[in-house]
Write a protein that binds this DNA or RNA. Structure first.
Length: 465
RNA sequence: GGUCCCAUCGUCUAGAGGCCUAGGACGGAGCCCUCUCAAGGCUCAGACACGGGUUCGAAUCCCGUUGGGACCGCCA
């Protein structure tokens, strides 16, 4: 039998971290079993669903590389199907019309809570006669007994049906509710494995009861533990960025996020670094933990740094361009880009950071950091810089090796340490005390720019002190 | 309040009754390397929530306590 999984977000906001992990696990499971991964948009709440949200979710998934095989299906386009199912239940005597108004129900709920009783619907309309002309909602008749949820992650969980109220499946305006829609969709879309957050565990017995009432086969369930914020409450905006696309903007690599999310709640021995192929091969629901996990931005940052460090220069260059362009630099036309990336890739934790560090390559006039200039561009350095200018000027081949040789000559002649001259040169060329190796900076910057900046620095040495 | 879920370093986790003096990773501290910053290498600190059982033997199985979380809508 073909394995079919689905991701079913409701379009009431962007794709968030938790949703992305759910989508990822569904994706990995389907791919591993050569099955299908289906995307379904649960937009039955017309008031809260927006097209922008739908697009944001699609964008997020595409960025992460979670490509779906079918869909997106929209529940809003399947209302007739749900309605049919609800009325079929009515005919079968497995549901009934409820004439209570939302106001009455709300009032009774408040009273029950005040008296410390469970706010459960009392089933008063179960045996009522039809009242033609009066508006009604349709409620599913929950039978007596026990319902067992067999969950791959949580194990067997038993629920007493008497604890479950007769839930509304069709509102009085004839729109369907969530629990009916999921069951009808998962059944008709032939979903074999329902992998979702464990906030749905309590809904599962209701759904199983409906599958059984329809004589549909019940899928396998796997309820993923929640992702929490640093204070161990459910992850939310308070905990910082929770939108997947926010990480794109902050200069994260999609695979870093995928790798991080995969390891949050799932493990494969001591392995930390996984390619997508690795994940597809090694993922298993059996190795998903039961307990909720705290989202740790530091570890994600480490992974991002790791993939930046290991990444192919050409690919990183392409990814870096938008960040450079955002700063107003015409990066695509710049032939130095590969060298720039090469020098920066193991020094940056994000693409944003990389673009920041790359600024001195693009700026016409670099500005010295105040403390850096004060410390390194001192009067006694002017002569040394002049010697360097002279020697670089006459250098036939402007290569890393040749440049290094020039520096070696000077430090030998003057019996000084390399640091003595390297730091002032660094400040002269970049304005900062931190940069890639000084020889590669000089090589990448080129003879003309290097000498111009050194001259300016030499003058600065004498000027300000 | 009711129902359900969960519990190993600060965090993510390994652990399937003896391989555990509890392993790895992030983060932290330190040392080495070094033209700066990174990267890299090495070292250190750091956990089985608590209490009872079961067993020759428990992080691992059972019960309870405590603590955390989720759900209880004509939301999804």
């Amino acid at each position: 039998m073909e394995i079919r999984t689905r991701f079913a977000p409701s379009p009431t906001g962007y794709l968030h971290i938790g949703g992305a992990r759910t989508a990822l696990f569904n994706y990995l499971f389907a791919r591993q079993h050569k099955g299908k991964f289906i995307l379904r948009i649960e937009d039955t709440d017309m008031a809260r669903s927006t097209e922008e949200s739908t697009q944001a979710i699609l964008d997020g998934m595409q960025w992460l590389g979670l490509n779906w095989d079918e869909g997106p299906y929209y529940q809003s386009k399947r209302f007739e199907l749900y309605k049919e199912h609800a009325y079929k239940f009515l005919e079968m005597g497995k549901a009934y019309k409820c004439y209570c108004t939302p106001e009455e129900l709300e009032q009774r709920r408040e009273e029950a809570i005040k008296q410390g009783k469970p706010p459960k619907y009392d089933g008063r309309c179960r045996n009522k006669k039809d009242e033609p002309g009066k508006p009604f909602a349709i409620r599913f008749k929950v039978p007596h007994g026990t319902t067992l949820v067999k969950d791959i992650i949580k194990g067997n969980v038993a629920f007493e049906n008497d604890e479950i109220e007769d839930l509304i499946i069709l509102r009085s305006d004839k729109t369907p509710t969530y629990n009916l829609c999921v069951v009808v969709d998962d059944a008709t879309m032939e979903i074999t494995h329902v992998i979702r957050g464990d906030d749905h565990l309590n809904n599962t017995p209701k759904q199983i009861l409906m599958y059984e009432a329809f004589c549909y086969s019940v899928p396998v369930f796997a309820h993923l533990p929640m992702i929490l914020g640093s204070d161990k409450t459910r992850l939310s905006k308070r905990h910082g960025a929770t939108s997947v696309m926010a990480y794109k903007e902050m200069g994260y690599l999609p695979h870093a996020l995928v790798n991080y999310l995969a390891r949050l709640g799932w493990s494969h021995g001591d392995q930390e670094i996984f390619t997508m192929e690795d994940l597809i091969e090694k993922f298993s629901l059996e190795n998903v933990g039961k307990s909720s996990g705290v989202f740790n931005p530091e570890k994600l940052l480490w992974l991002n740094q790791h993939y930046l460090k290991e990444g192919k220069i050409e690919e990183l260059a392409l990814l870096l361009i938008p960040f450079l362009e955002a700063k107003g630099y015409n990066a695509p036309a710049d032939k130095r880009l590969p060298n720039i990336v090469k020098g920066l890739q193991e020094r940056a934790k994000t693409l944003v950071e990389m673009a920041d560090s790359a600024e001195f390559y693009f700026k016409e006039d670099i500005v010295y950091e105040e403390n850096a200039a004060k410390k390194f561009l001192t009067p006694d350095m002017a002569a040394l810089l002049d010697i360097l200018i002279d020697r670089l000027h006459t250098l036939p081949a402007f290569t890393h090796e040749a440049i290094e040789a020039v520096f070696n000559d000077i430090t030998n002649e003057k019996t000084i340490k390399l640091g003595k001259i390297a730091q002032p040169v660094r400040v002269a060329l970049t304005g900062r005390t931190v940069s890639p190796g000084i020889f590669e900076v000089i090589e990448t910057l080129g003879k003309e720019t290097t000498i111009a900046r050194l001259k300016k620095a030499s003058a600065h040495c004498l000027l300000t002190h």
